[in-house]
Structures are given as structure tokens and as C-alpha cells.
């Protein structure tokens, strides 16, 4: 029975492998990053709209009160969703950092 000796990965192949891994990782990271950035921008826009609505209400320009309140609630809900996504991402990161090596 032949047991193959342990052969180190040839440097060229190793380089290619790590480069590939790095690329893939970078891509997914940037995808998640851009997605998260977009979500943050969207929530920020919603919060700004709610703020503008509140200002209008204070000035007496708002045509109906319940629309302002609903916009506020929506902005709050979106922000809570964003926070939960952020919590999950952070949890995953901490889980990985706790990993024994």
C-alpha cells in the first residue's frame, strides 16, 4: 500500500488559491457592504422625510396628522430592522473572533 507523502502546495498554485479566495471574499464582502450601505441610505432618507413632515406639522402645513404619524412609525420600523441586521452581522463577527485556533 502506497501512502502518498505529504506534498506542500506548489507556491504558484498556493498563490493562485489564496488570490482566488481573497477575491471571492472581497466580492461578497463588498456586495454585502454596498447592500448594507444602500439600506442605511434608504433608512436615512425615510428618517429625513419623517423629520420634514414633523417640521411641516409644527408649521401648521401638514394636511393630515395620521399620515405624519404613520411616516414616523415606518421610519422607526425601518431603523429597527436595520439595527437587527447590524446586530446579526456583529454577532456573526464576534462568533468568528471567539473561534479557537
Amino acid at each position: 500500500m502506497n501512502i502518498d507523502p505529504i506534498v506542500g502546495i506548489p507556491p504558484a498554485a498556493a498563490g493562485a488559491l489564496s488570490a482566488q479566495a481573497g477575491e471571492a471574499q472581497g466580492e461578497t464582502f463588498s456586495k454585502f457592504g454596498t447592500w448594507f450601505g444602500q439600506q442605511i441610505a434608504e433608512v436615512n432618507g425615510q428618517l429625513q422625510r419623517a423629520d420634514a413632515n414633523l417640521q411641516q406639522l409644527a408649521l401648521g402645513d401638514a394636511n393630515n396628522l395620521h399620515q405624519v404619524m404613520i411616516n414616523l412609525e415606518e421610519a422607526k420600523l425601518s431603523f429597527q430592522l436595520l439595527m437587527q441586521v447590524r446586530n446579526r452581522a456583529l454577532e456573526a463577527y464576534q462568533e468568528i473572533m471567539r473561534m479557537q485556533v
Partner: peptide
Amino acid sequence: MDYSQAFEISASGMTVEKL
């Protein structure tokens, strides 16, 4: 978000009742 539709429906009812 799909919940905004429920909000919209309720808001339409509120608008009618306000009038």
C-alpha cells in the same frame, strides 16, 4: 417593506373618517 401596505390601507380609512 410589505407592512407599508397595511399602513396605507389604514391611512385611507382614517382619511375618510376624518372627512
